[in-house]
Design a protein around this nucleic acid. Sequence first.
DNA 1: TAAAACTAGTGGTCTATACAACTATACTAA
DNA 2: TTAGTATAGTTGTATAGACCACTAGTTTTA
Lengths: 240, 240
Amino acid sequence: MIDKHSPIPIYYQIEEFLKEKIVSKQYEVDQAIPSERELSEVFGVSRMTIRQALNDLVTEGYLYREKGKGTFVAAQKIEQPLHEVTGFSEDMLKRGMVPATRIIQFGETDADKQIAAYLKINEHDPIYKIERLRLADERPIALEHTYVPVHLVPNLTEDIVKESFYSYVEQHLQLEISHAEQTIEAGLANSKQASLLEISQGSPVLFIQQLTCLTNEQPIEWVRSTYRADRYKFHVNMKR
Amino acid sequence: MIDKHSPIPIYYQIEEFLKEKIVSKQYEVDQAIPSERELSEVFGVSRMTIRQALNDLVTEGYLYREKGKGTFVAAQKIEQPLHEVTGFSEDMLKRGMVPATRIIQFGETDADKQIAAYLKINEHDPIYKIERLRLADERPIALEHTYVPVHLVPNLTEDIVKESFYSYVEQHLQLEISHAEQTIEAGLANSKQASLLEISQGSPVLFIQQLTCLTNEQPIEWVRSTYRADRYKFHVNMKR
DNA sequence: TAAAACTAGTGGTCTATACAACTATACTAA
DNA sequence: TTAGTATAGTTGTATAGACCACTAGTTTTA
C-alpha cells in the first residue's frame, strides 16, 4: 500500500491513496475519514506526515476539516472553469462525439509576415505547417491550419500531430501551456473548404482563429479553423 | 513584531508580516527572502512553524520556492476575468465604437413553449418582448430579440430598455446578475434580417443566443441576436 | 587549464512529542 | 428533570531535531 523506501514521498503516496478512495466513491460525501491518529497508526507514520497529506487534499478541495470533530469528504466541486484551452479531440469528446483526424498536409516552411507576427518570431523563421481535416462521428466538421515555430517543437512528427499535440508539448517538452485567445467570426465556405467539408460552396461556416501561448507569453501555435455551421456551435459561459 | 502569547497563531502572524512586506514592495519580485532557518532564528520559532507560514504564502501565490536555492517573491498575478457579462453598449465601448439603439418593437406577450423553457417559467406566462436594432458608429451591426419575464421586472419601459437594462435590474430592482451562457453559430441572413442590417439576403451572420441568470439560477433574459459577420468578431480568452 | 571533489547553504521530507481548543457523549449533582 | 462536569476523542499549533536532494561556489586534482 505504502512503500516507505520509495523515492516518492510518503505523504504523497498517502495523498494519492486517499484521493483514489474519494474519487472512486469508496468514501461518501460528508463521511468522516479515519482520524489523523488512526491513519498514522495504520500507515505506521507520524501524525505530521498524515497532516501533510490531508492539508494538500484540503487545499485541493477533496476534504474539509471541523475542529474537534474530524475530517470529512467534500462534495465534488462542480465549478467547471469558464473556459479551458482544449484541443479538438477533447472538445469533441466533451460533446459526446467520436473525434478523428485526417492529415492533409504536414511540412516545414518559412513564416510569412502575418504568421511571424502572430507567433512573435522573425519573418522566414522555419515553422511547421499542418493542415488537418477534423471529423466527428466520422463526418467532416472542421478544416484546420496550424502553424508552429520549429525552434519550440523541434521534432514534431505526423504521428504526434495525429495524437495529442498538447500532451506532447506539456509532457515531453515540459512546456507549460497557459492560455489561448480565440476570435470567432462567420463566413461562407470557399470551394476548397466546401469540398473537404462536404458542403456546397457558399454554405455558412464559423471561422475560428486561436493563438495558444505558454506561460512566458510565447505563442506556440496559431490555428485557423473553418467549422461547418450546421454541425458546430460555440459555447461560452460568462460571469458578472 | 510577533506576539507568542497572542491567541492568533504564530505562523499566521508571520504570514501576515511577510505578506505585508511583499505587497508593500519591501521585497522585490524574484528577490530571495531570508532562508527558513534564518527566519526561524529571527522570530525565535521552529523551522516547521516558519514552513507553515511559507506554505500558505506559496499556495496563495505570493512566494515560490526553488529547491537548493531559496524562497522568492512571486510576481503579482494580473488575472483579468476571462469573460464578463456585458451588455451591448458596454461591449461596443470596449471596442472603441459608439453604440446606439433603435427600438423596433416593445410589448408584452405570452411565453411560447420554447421561451418558457429557456426562462424557466410556465407557458403563457407574461413576458416582455423587445426587438432592437443595434448600431455601432451609426451603422447597423446587430438585430436583437430579448425576452424578459414580467414578474421579475414588473415595470419595464421603453426608456429603460434604451438605456441600460442591466444597471436597472441591479440597482433599482436589487437583483444580482451572476452569469450568462452564450451559444454562437454561423448562418445566413434571411430577408428581414438582411433589410434591417442593410446587407443582402444570404450574407453570412453570427447568431448569438444568450441566457442571463441571477444568483439563484433564475434566468432573467433570453436574447437571440443576429450580428453582421463583416462588422463583428467574437473574442474569447481561455486558460489551461 | 579543465575536470572532479568538496563544502556550505537551501528547501523537502519525516519523526516523536506536547499542549491547546473544540465537540460529543456520558455521568453526576442540584 | 436539568444543569453542570468530567472524559475521551478530534483537529490546531508548535517544538527540536534528523536526514535527504539539490545548488552554487571553492578547492583540489589530473
